[in-house]
Design a protein around this nucleic acid. Structure first.
Lengths: 339, 339
DNA sequence: GTTAGCAGTCGGTATCATCGAGTGCTGGCC
DNA sequence: GGCCAGCACTCGATGATACCGACTGCTAAC
């Protein structure tokens, strides 16, 4: 399963050139690549072996070779020292995070654009899950006589809101009273724990009107939505499009990107398998057979908080994209740790 | 500038068939179209005239004809009675709005998906501007000693928040005091008016610490952000992709859809010109030369509140898309009027 | 083990003929 | 005068054919 030095060098050269040109690579080109100091005939022999071992394929007999998933996999697993971003890009990242300020959502959204701009592929930024955040404040605001808004500020700066609809008019005073009753019970709790531990308390109370009923309604609405536990921001889907040549394929990939919870679970899945790169079928999604995903968690205050990722073609520029993801995830974590 | 009956019928037939097949339309096909009771030779004569008048073009001498922008324009301007949605679609809209509940943002997001599903093009839903909404409640919540969140609930159920960063630690009590001072001045105002009329009051106060300073900071942060005055939701960009055949073009269009404020101003622009359909260069954006946009405002409580739109190829199915936009905008307005 | 040389493969491109959908025009009919 | 059958013509699309060249695998020599 392990390759000798020369074959590894040749494989690397093939992948590198294919990434650049998107054309099958012939032995002649490889022989001229730096580090390969053998003739094209020797390269040919080794390429034939590499094909037998499943690292390369020939689209047709008289053509050069193209990396298989296994080939890409070897390439990323044996990259040696991780690349640095080129100066201009590094500069861009620095000045971006120096200027980044304001709302969490805005920062995450802009970060996804930044990453997309750096890599020329689609970028995904998943915000910190609300799971872990505790409730800082609770408020009940009437919008119409029968509709009120439950507004909670979480410790990570995210705001959760729930619409409460009643089948009878509700007074502002009742809302205020309900909010007062609610606050001591839920402040300091997470959404989930607040929803769980507050329920039994409420079941004892009865009646369909008055503050107690409102409190009960509010508690019932607390539980975190299945799919909205974390925020997802996707940037640069348009850039990814240019990396493919069939419109139908682009459309399928966009369709996946539109289902944000699918993207989130894809990233989570990859991380759970202990990977930070998933190539082709490794993504587990059929329409992504020609795509690769790079994932990296970012740390806020030393704990993994969210995830960023890049989605591009299997022949993406791995060294550069890996470097970009690494730098951005590190800087983003830093930025969010400051508070 | 006006066409006689037969030429109008022929033009309509050409546009209708081209929309369906995306192939240049020949005189033979037109002659067979219902309503055209003349021979292909006569159709040929009229088509030649229609070409002279700029409604049609021939891609090459021995080919059928394709509508020009002017041709599409005539088609949509003379559609006669607006189409009805087919039964299944109408049913889908009804059940969607019957089930629609919960947060405003979620409803708008889902509506964009619904509209995209109905039309098979990209759909845009612009939420009610925050401009007109008045502030219902104000709250200041500390996140870290030096960072606080200004949270405002607006009358339309939208939440506006502003991050306040201080260069010295701030006590919870100070925040509470500042919020108390702020509330009577801004509740009931719009964001803009609150920002405007509260400023002079604050300039009289001095000092860099204490509740007064916090209040001043909060007021300064009130002014609505230029670009985030309304929320934009875009659905079904992937569907639009399949309507084109050049990847580069798809990429350019996606790029525009990614700049949400561009989309918003595009829709606004079209409405300002008194149109509800913009075709090709009428959109004013070069990459959209092969696109058409359908726009419709929706009314909440009798007042125009937001806008919905569809972006598709110039050869989009106008009757169907117009019907879908009309129904959805009407139902959405209804749904949001209930409160 | 490496490599120069060589025969063989096969996709891509160019050339050419053919086909057919579609046109414009003409001349006859109502 | 308006309509239309008929006809010659145009020109892109399609398919066959030949050619070119970028490859390969193999062999024999170093």
């Amino acid at each position: 399963m392990t390759l000798d030095d020369r074959k590894a060098t040749i494989l690397r050269a093939v992948v590198a050139e294919y990434i650049e040109t998107a054309q099958p690579v012939g032995s002649g080109h490889v022989a001229q690549a730096p580090g390969v100091n053998v003739s094209s005939a020797t390269v040919r022999n080794d390429m034939a072996l590499l094909e037998q071992e499943g690292y390369l394929v020939q689209p047709h007999t008289s053509a050069g070779r193209v990396p298989t998933e296994k080939g890409y996999r070897f390439f990323v697993d044996h990259l040696g020292s991780p690349d640095q971003l080129v100066g201009a890009d590094a500069q861009q990242v620095r000045s971006f995070f120096r200027a980044a300020h304001g709302e969490l959502e805005q920062v995450l959204q802009d970060t996804s654009r930044l990453l997309a701009g750096l890599t020329q592929y689609a970028a995904v930024v998943v915000g910190p899950p609300h799971e872990a955040a505790t409730i800082r404040s609770v408020q009940l605001v009437g919008l119409t006589p029968r509709v009120a808004l439950l507004v909670m500020v979480l410790s990570n700066g995210v705001i959760e809101k729930r619409t409460l609809e009643f089948d009878h008019d509700v007074e502002e005073l009742e809302l205020a009273a309900a909010a007062l009753a609610l606050a001591p019970r839920v402040v300091g709790e997470t959404l989930a724990s607040a929803a769980a531990c507050a329920v039994p308390v409420d079941e004892q109370l009865d009646g369909t009107t008055g503050p107690a009923a409102i409190t009960r309604r509010a508690v019932a609405a607390l539980a975190p939505d299945e799919h909205h536990d974390e925020q997802v921001f996707i940037g640069g889907a348009s850039r990814m499009a240019s990396a493919f040549d069939a419109v139908a394929q682009v459309s399928e990939i966009l369709q996946i990107l539109e289902q944000q919870y699918v993207v989130v679970s894809l990233l989570r899945d990859v991380l759970d398998r202990g990977l930070n790169v998933a190539i082709g079928t490794e993504t587990g999604m059929v329409p992504l057979a020609d795509c690769a995903v790079i994932v990296s968690p970012y740390l806020v205050d030393g704990e993994t908080a969210g995830t960023i990722g890049v989605l591009g073609p299997t022949r993406m520029n791995y060294p550069q994209a890996l470097a970009a993801v690494a730098v951005v995830s590190q800087r983003l974590g830093h930025r969010l740790s400051e508070g």
